[in-house]
Design a protein around this nucleic acid. Structure first.
Length: 599
RNA sequence: GGAGCGGUGGUGGAAGAGUUAACACGUCGGCCUGUCAAGCCGAAGAUUGCGGGUGCGAAACCCGUCCGCUCCGCCA
């Protein structure tokens, strides 16, 4: 028979009690974390969001309470009243914040019983993801997950506090939006009222926030839910949260300075991490040339070194010929790895192949000379001369390869990260933040045979580069876009936006939109630009990824209360699910067979 | 769309194709007044994800399928 909560009232959180409460009579409510039954004396650990506290159930204090405790098992929901007492010296538990005190139970209420849980609610959960996701509410009971949820709250509160204090307005924007081309696949919602038509869930509030600037809101932010129907990854969920920010009458530096202050505030308040300002800035070209990535991890060195000119006229025909055809020669140095075995070196070459390289030439700097495939065509002197920029010393291993610019930079960028991991060059306590700027505006899409926007089509090109629209050299147009990168992870991205109809039309034209198509999809935006649109720009943080870094979580699922699995389903509720024929009929939707889909 | 890894009592996790599918934790019962991963004694609990196949014999090998995880493609 369960007890009613009527007549009982909680006075403290279990984890909040300490020596100051000694002598007080308190009431706790919570879950029974563990029960230790010594026969004529029982210990109950009561757990709530605030922590854990030991309750002593002694028949000499209360026989009624003692009998009541008999059937209590793990995860029962109970209420305990009793006096807080100091523990004997030899009974102190230094692992608990409440370890110097305990409660002598005078009254026990059982508000609910609990079946044996499908997995243990303890710190290092080893249970299968399947189970954790199906019983997410149990998973969230662990201290670890509770802490992550508290961090999530703290982070959001920091953002609200800081931005509110700096004249930003929190304004919400629609979830039922218009499907527009470009970008990720949309989640669609059928309209019942207008049969055959669909809403799309927002991939981001991009256009709304720009229109809020046109509306004169001046400074806006939102903790915004965003939806992208693409495949999932360790750090990617179909439904995620952005800290979305937009400001009027700003240049790129104004946004960046504001973001540096906000970021500093967030990291200091949530994790006690302080950054030096201004943050390091690298241009996109610098980042790509030195690190092979537009989000380089600068917690360790290992720069990519260019050797193209040194091999332009070399004896090594493979490199010489490739360079003549426009390929680049790049090198990476692995300090102290000259003694790698044949199989370790083969492993590196294989890695290169998996990243798209045809091969890698290795050079081992040993005390008795160098060992390398270059020797077939070049003297040791010539090899050393060609590789001088890498400044190798005895004991080092060099990786050299040739390929088209994008291929080799991408491959070496990834190998660089593998080297960082393999040689444990990364200090796990270090936080390395930087801006990457001056992105190219467009990128050629081989599949669609057209240029696409690297950031998004509302990003302002450098005004100085507008001339390339006329000459058709779209790959030379730079964008006023900036990414904030922390430990090799893009945590925020933003840009100065176009606020001029003419420029916006040029960009759409460059992307291959007809005037009609541009008007049909984005006419409302361009029309708004004709009614006094202020210069504006902004940024959006990936809140979940930010939390992953702050909490040092191995997966984005660990910082989202109810995440989706890799196949985008919710194992707890069973979403997505089939719906009634009747519901479909109301929406004028007819299901088609897999055979038709395959066509 | 493609690739890799995994799925064994409630949980974790063993098991060269060969008797009764280890072990630990949990659960249940008993003993026990200072534990905090309590301890001690005992018991129950599994058609090895699902469906085929090979074979005298399959948890194991093969094929298919479902689910989870990771990666590539994809993610302005």
């Amino acid at each position: 028979m369960l007890d009613k909560y009527e007549g009982f009232s909680r006075t403290h959180g279990a984890g909040h009690l300490n020596e100051k409460n000694i002598g007080e009579t308190v009431s706790l409510c919570g879950w029974v974390h563990r029960r230790r039954d010594h026969g004529d004396l029982t210990f109950l650990d009561i757990r709530d969001r605030y922590g854990l506290c030991q309750v002593v159930v002694d028949p000499k204090i209360s026989k009624t309470a003692f009998d009541k405790a008999d059937p209590i098992r793990k995860e029962f929901v109970v209420g305990i009243s009793g006096k807080v007492v100091e523990r004997a010296n030899n009974a102190i538990n230094p692992n608990l914040s409440t370890g110097r005190i305990e409660i002598l139970a005078e009254e026990i209420k059982i508000f609910n019983e609990a079946k044996t849980t499908p997995f243990f609610i303890e710190e290092n959960i080893t249970a299968d993801e399947n189970l954790r996701m199906k019983y997410r509410y149990l998973d969230l009971r662990t201290q670890h997950m509770t802490r992550n949820m508290i961090m999530r709250h703290k982070l959001i509160k920091c953002v609200r506090d800081y931005l509110s204090d700096n004249d930003f307005l929190e304004i919400d924007t629609p979830i039922l939006c218009k499907s527009t081309p470009e970008g990720a696949r949309d989640y669609l919602v059928p309209s019942r009222v207008q049969k055959g038509k669909f809403f799309a869930l927002p991939q981001s509030p991009q256009l709304f926030k720009q229109l809020l600037m046109v509306a004169g809101m001046d400074r806006y932010f939102q903790i915004a839910k965003c939806f992208r129907d693409e495949d999932l990854r360790l750090d990617r969920q179909p439904e995620f949260t952005q800290i979305d920010i937009e400001m009027s009458f700003v240049r790129q530096d104004d946004v960046m300075q504001m973001v540096e202050k906000l970021t500093g505030y967030i990291f200091d308040k949530t994790a006690g991490i302080k950054f030096d300002t201004p943050f390091l800035r690298l241009s996109y070209d610098e980042a790509m040339d030195s690190y092979g990535s537009d989000k380089p991890d600068l917690r360790f060195g290992v720069k990519i070194t260019d050797l193209t000119e040194n091999f332009r006229n070399s004896e090594f025909a493979v490199f010489k010929n490739a360079v003549a055809e426009g390929s680049l020669v790049k090198g990476l140095k692995m300090e102290g790895c000259a003694n790698y075995s044949r199989s370790e070196i083969d492993g590196l070459v294989e890695m290169g192949k998996s990243f798209g390289l045809k091969g890698i030439v290795t050079v081992q700097y040993k005390p008795d000379g160098i060992k390398t495939q270059f020797s077939k065509a070049m003297s040791e002197e010539a090899v050393k001369k060609a590789l001088e920029p890498l400044e190798a010393k005895d004991g080092d291993l060099l990786l050299i390869a040739v390929d088209k610019k994008d291929v080799i930079l991408n491959a070496f960028g990834r190998i660089r990260c593998e080297i960082g991991k393999k040689l444990t060059l990364i200090d796990p306590k270090k936080f390395s933040i930087l801006w990457v700027t001056d992105f190219p505006m467009f990128e050629y899409d081989d599949e669609d045979k057209r240029f696409v926007a690297k950031h998004h089509p509302f990003t302002s090109p450098f005004l100085a580069d507008l001339k390339y629209f006329e000459t058709g050299e779209l790959d030379r147009v730079r964008a006023s876009a900036y990414d904030l990168v922390l430990n090799g992870c893009e945590i925020a991205g933003g840009s100065i936006r176009i606020h001029d109809r003419g420029v916006q039309e040029k960009v759409f034209a460059a992307l291959g939109f007809s005037k009609e198509a541009a008007n049909d999809k984005f006419g409302f935006l361009m029309e708004a630009f004709e009614y006094g649109a202020p210069p504006h720009g902004g940024i959006a943080f990936g809140l979940d990824r930010l939390l992953m870094l702050i909490t040092d979580s191995p997966s984005i699922r660990d910082v989202i209360p109810f995440p989706k699995t890799a196949s985008a389903s919710c194992l707890m509720t069973g979403a997505p699910n089939l719906v009634d024929e009747k519901q479909l009929k109301e929406l004028a939707i007819k299901q088609i067979t897999p055979e038709i889909i395959a066509q």
